[in-house]
Computed example of a mutant assay.
Amino acid sequence: MTQVQHPSAPVRDWLIGLQSSIIDALQQLEIEAGSTARFIRDPWQKSGNEPLQGDGITCIIEGGKVFERAGCGFSHVRGPALPPSATERRPELAGAPFEAMGVSLVFHPLNPYVPTVHMNVRMLTATPAGGAPVSWFGGGMDLTPYYAYEEDARHFHQVCRDSLAPFGEDKYPRYKAWCDEYFCLRHRGEQRGIGGIFYDDVSELGFEQGFAMMQSVGGHFLDAYLPIVRRRKDEPWGERERDFQRYRRGRYVEFNLVFDRGTHFGLQSGGRTESILLSMPPHATWAYQRTFEPGSREAELTERFLVRRDWL
């Protein structure tokens, strides 16, 4: 692969630091809860005759008192040709050698009153034949509650807006709408959660500002999520709430396997399957045409929260 002009080392170092800070914060929550569960740190490397070369660190905790399953992965890979999922918006780069790095996480709490969360920040650089390297950035975060609260939704979106404020007043409205459009189960006509922000293939800011925006989004994640976890993690719950949580997690699985571009990119490019699928919940269920009693908290989720709204 042609040497890229943009220095990737500072981006890599920052991403590894981001992963560590997030894992440390979640581990502290488990310790405070009296849990003996600890994050497993699993470094990996792809080499030899595989088309995709690179390395990464997968960190995962299972069976905690706060998080039933939480995975946070760093990856840095290089390949001879961009997969189709990465060139939908950039057909001129189809088949170009590439370098991709990022941090991606999905946390599935044990308590159904604590929402599932997803966050991802990434950079991708491609070098078309005879051309100069092209770098672009993507990322965002979104919240998927099972039992939703207005104050939690407002807090999450406020921090999302704060993370983008230095880069233009247009960014939060654009990326909030982009998130609503992206995290939609189109075959059901249903939002995955209450949204957040999402952006992809962003290069108009240039390398330095694109990197700075990625740092801001990733750096605001804990501020967006941890206060919600601390507010809800000790709410009493029973089998009814647990059953509903598993049912809604089924929707999460549907989205990740059918629509998620990150999942498709990883599998199409020959990525590490165990790391790619760390976003899957440990338990999920499906039911045929299930309905819920009008006025119930379960019905409220679909009627009031799984809709596209201005949360601020």
Rank of each mutant, 00 (worst) to 15 (best):
R122C: 01
R122T: 03
M123I: 12
M123G: 11
A126G: 00
A126P: 00
T127G: 01
P128W: 10
P128K: 12
A129K: 10
G130V: 02
G130S: 07
G131F: 07
A132M: 01
P133E: 00
P133A: 10
P133Q: 00
P133L: 01
V134K: 03
S135W: 02
S135D: 09
W136T: 00
F137M: 06
G139P: 05
G139I: 07
G140Y: 10
M141L: 15
D142V: 01
T144H: 10
T144K: 09
T144M: 12
Y146R: 03
Y146T: 13
Y146Q: 07
Y146S: 09
Y147F: 15
Y147P: 08
A148R: 02
A148E: 06
A148V: 08
A148N: 04
A148K: 06
Y149N: 13
D152G: 12
D152F: 08
R154T: 13
H155S: 12
H155L: 14
F156W: 09
F156D: 14
H157E: 03
H157S: 02
Q158A: 15
Q158D: 14
Q158I: 02
V159H: 10
V159M: 11
C160E: 09
C160S: 11
R161N: 08
R161H: 08
D162Y: 06
L164C: 13
L164Y: 05
